[in-house]
Write a protein that binds this DNA or RNA. Structure first.
Lengths: 219, 219
DNA sequence: GCTTTTCAATACGCGCCCGTATGGTTTTGT
DNA sequence: ACAAAACCATACGGGCGCGTATTGAAAAGC
């Protein structure tokens, strides 16, 4: 613990190395942690390197956000893109989002700087795309677009909130079997699959919602 | 638009004035916006004033957080503390949290800096207290503590997520009648009434619950 | 009336970050 | 082998925020 340490620069840094480091910095220190000199130190180089790869700090920020957006969409697509069953698709999205703590933190950290117009632009796109998946899935479950939008928003809000809870008050989150129970409860509640067969009426929704709590909750 | 403008300092500033200004700053610029010199400018004075009222920046931050915690608990207590019906209590918490956009922004801004130990301490307390209300309410609805914890967490996550959506992608949030529909959907889903009839068996509660379904009044 | 106390302006040094300028070293092409 | 390009170090000026020191002026106490 003598100095901030310096990872040896294997060969020669690329712009992408800087972008990755910037994302790392955001995840653990927020948007303001994207500072040229500290990043240079953590990469074991000096500013001289940076200003060869980028014209200024904002360019780095943009590169980092682009990397983030790419990863985000690729990941989601790769994991749930080919799932045919809409129910399972929603489940996968949920689990994926609830499992990857790291990416969750990153999302929250970036979203926290939504006042920055550049950041806001990216958050907008990523959020819209994610919500789009959910919307499609709920429509595939048989909901008309209005109700699908409500349920999709509901589900999205819930998992965003879970991320927040996980970050801010981890003790509130159950672990092990209890966590699985919690997940199951949310699935049953947020994905009323009976609605498809039963036709879509107000009563159907209520039935689906209420029934969700008495199902066998073993394991 | 010549300078950042300066609100005239009515009389003489108090420590509380500074704390209020600091909270304002957090709401619109994040934790880092709590900076002595900028705040002094916005208050129409100089640092000389600040360092009479506070020993340093951290003291201001603490004062702001204390003010926040006080407001937060007072507000919640004042609005839903005396509501006897647990169903209505949950509804009120939800509506309150979903209506006050300002306080929501503030919460998110503060929580975004949970890496700061001081901040984390306060977030912890406020979150725990809020969650406590929900937990009690669900227990009053007839759930055993495990299930009540699950439902409370679920509801809390959902409304935290709604805050986030409202801040980051406001277009996703419906307005007017559609918003009331959305709220109703969440109420019906997150506050299962069946348990009331099964558990406590108070007819009055059921009446109150059904009554609340039609009075959607949250702009 | 005069002294304290209260509140605030001004001036200074420090640290940290940005961006530029300039030069140095290592690779690559031929 | 030599020039060009890629990559990085060092040094500088400027901005901005923190904290201290010192002085100044209005209100309160006696």
């Amino acid at each position: 613990m003598t100095a901030p340490a310096a990872a040896e620069p294997r060969q020669s840094l690329t712009a992408d190395d800087w972008a990755r480091a910037a994302l790392e910095a955001i995840a653990s220190g927020g948007l303001d942690a994207v500072a040229v000199e500290p990043l240079a130190r953590s990469l074991g180089v000096t500013k001289g390197s940076f200003y060869w790869h980028f014209p200024n700090r904002e360019a780095l920020l943009r590169a980092a956000l682009e990397l983030w957006e790419r990863r985000e969409t690729e990941d989601v697509l790769a994991r749930v893109g080919d799932e045919p069953d809409p129910y399972e698709r929603i489940v996968k999205i949920f689990k994926e989002a609830n499992a990857g703590y790291r990416s969750g933190r990153l999302y929250l950290a970036i979203a926290a700087a939504e006042d920055n117009p550049l950041v806001n632009e990216f958050v907008q796109r990523v959020s819209t795309r994610r919500m789009g998946y959910l919307l499609q899935s709920y429509q595939a479950l048989g909901f008309d677009s209005v109700r699908a939008a409500h349920w999709a928003r509901f589900a999205y809000a819930t998992f965003m909130g879970n991320l927040q809870i996980r970050r801010d008050t981890p003790e509130m989150m159950p672990t092990g079997a209890a966590f699985n129970e919690y997940l199951k409860l949310m699935f049953k509640t947020l994905i009323p699959r009976e609605t498809i067969a039963r036709g879509i009426g107000e009563d159907g929704l209520i039935a689906a919602a209420t029934r969700s709590q008495e199902g066998g909750d073993t394991q």
